[in-house]
Nucleic acid binder design. Structure first.
Lengths: 198, 198, 198, 198
DNA sequence: AATGAATGAGCCTTCATTCAT
DNA sequence: AATGAATGAAGGCTCATTCAT
């Protein structure tokens, strides 16, 4: 039954369906029909609203990025100290939303996509830069600039690595352990900084 | 004119071509024809020798895994202390061979493939388990068992994360910095271990 | 806000938009949406008023035919002699209205359409018959019946041919030259008639 | 049963099938599958050999043009006088090959195509220019240069017009009458030239 | 040993058309 | 009077795969 104002609803449904479908299949080899069916609409409608498969994927990536950005922003808002800010960023990356199997899978898949699609890469750069600069900024208040850069990179790498490994694990996601590993790393690294001559 | 004993030559050429092609395109969306052309043979021949695209990909993954395994084995052979063994493993992961753009891309792509292909996942498990157990074994000689597990996982995660990030960078690979980051992490972590109450 | 008496306005707008669209694209491969947009209405409305694409095309053809018919009638009204009548018909075919690029293109396109659509062919027959009989009638007053048929056919053919060739030319239409060519042909033909044995 | 050297055979079969299919349907709205089926092959093969529908159409046009060119060349070879050359060109345009219903339809359809496809237009220009220059050359030997241009254009137009009209006629083609009309036109025109003051 | 020939299956995309509002 | 919403049907194209040579 056609109603007015369906567009945002359909777009949202299609994007969610895309995440689910990619999550289930574990790759971008998902047909528009599969996605549309999951969203309860025809494939033609997906094209109608997004223009094509490529754009649907891009919109989905953007959504993923936005969600992560919001999680980070909220966490940062509640943080009081620089060390808190770092924890907030780590927590955001492993928050329930982000760590659902389908979401992890979708992230990973888009990560790879970024290798071959210029538009995808552009989107990812924005995300990477934002996370990095947030981390760097927090670290800088705890160490010198040079170390901040290093530590920010290492932290980001570990986060990504844990994501990656979770994407391949069979069992349920285990965000607590992941967070603990990164936190320990940060603690140790900052600790070592404070005691230069060991 | 058909020659005798061409099989190993062709197989090798096709596997190399697969790595190159995937590296260039940045995804598994490579046609058998493209690969075959790059190897200087017909697409039909690829099927003749491998049975199908799937098997060609699997063989290529296996090759990648073997190469990494060999790099690790060689490094471990020269290592004298447990700490040396850890460094050897890190170095192997970032050795010149492994860190060529095409290879990084191929790894990443196969990583994702593992999500949807049971056979691919099986192969990767073997690799992950071997790296993990090697790391764990070395760490266990420097820390307690519990910490060894944790540290091994964190180290492996950081390595994977650095790989991932390099896969998306535009510039030339920078293995030295990557190695330094991981080594620092290990140093700091072991350091912290030795001085429990900080 | 819906207004009353919109029907004729919309129909006219849609027909004009059809001519323009066909003229611009140079073929019948025009979507109903494109036409509707050009007319400033929704595609659904086009169906509402015409019933379908086919009927819209047919209505457009009819319009084209009517315009040509009117141009001819007006010219014939002012003609005094049989020879004048011939000139009037020629002039009508190359009158400004008919010789606009979009109109030429539309004519040509519909001409082809007539090959595959019975209804389109029927419309064209009416036009062709009317032009032919007008020409024949005029010629008959200047020559014998047999020759009149021949000359009418030749004249009509030349007119159509000149149209065709103009449809493919890049530059601006050149009705004067076209008219001159046909007039010369008629003159020469009639001349030859008068002097049978050469 | 796959054999070697099939390519030229298949190409030829596909081109012939294209002409037939277009001729039967009377428009370019022919699917590749229809054409392929008529040629006794799969649609995929058509793409394999031609790359796409567009190229298949272009190749078909080229073939049509070549056939016409050959008919003209043969006729010209046998012509002794300038007037003979003109007749030869006219005859070529209405020769049995060219005047088959399917061929006429295909010509007409491609003629229209030229309006929207740059590549098609380019091909047609070549044909038009060649026919024109041949005609002009012959006329120039019989009249002054200025008249030659005019007469060549008028002749070409009449030929095209007769083609056009035949394309829409239901009955069987009637090349003799068509040729007679054009020949009469040429005769009368040349006659008139010779007797300037009437 | 190697390949040209050939195809079936499947996907993206377009578009005319319908319907409820 | 007019339109946004929605879809079924169909077409072009790609590609892995097979087969006879």
């Amino acid at each position: 039954m056609p109603k007015l104002g369906m567009e945002p609803i359909r777009r949202r449904a299609l994007i969610d369906a895309t995440i689910e479908a990619i999550g289930e299949v574990g790759s971008l080899d998902v047909t528009v029909s599969q996605i549309a069916e999951r969203a309860g609409v025809s494939a033609a409608l997906a094209h109608h609203y997004f223009g094509g498969k490529e754009e649907l994927f891009l919109a989905t990536m953007r959504e993923l990025l936005v969600r992560l950005g919001e999680a980070a922003r909220q966490g940062l808002g509640r943080a009081r100290t620089p060390r808190d800010r770092i924890s907030a960023l780590i927590a955001a990356c492993f928050s329930a939303d982000q760590f659902e199997p389908a979401t992890i899978a979708a992230w990973l898949v888009f990560y790879v996509r970024a290798q071959s699609s210029e538009s995808a890469r552009r989107l990812f750069r924005i995300y990477a830069r934002r996370l990095d600069s947030n981390l760097r900024f927090a670290f800088r208040q705890l160490t010198g600039t040079t170390d901040a850069v290093r530590l920010a990179e290492a932290t980001a790498a570990m986060i990504d690595g844990l994501w990656l490994r979770h994407a391949l694990k069979d069992g349920p996601p285990d965000p607590e352990t992941a967070v603990a590993l990164v936190e320990d790393f940060v603690d140790d690294a900052l600790d070592a900084r404070g005691r230069p001559a060991s």
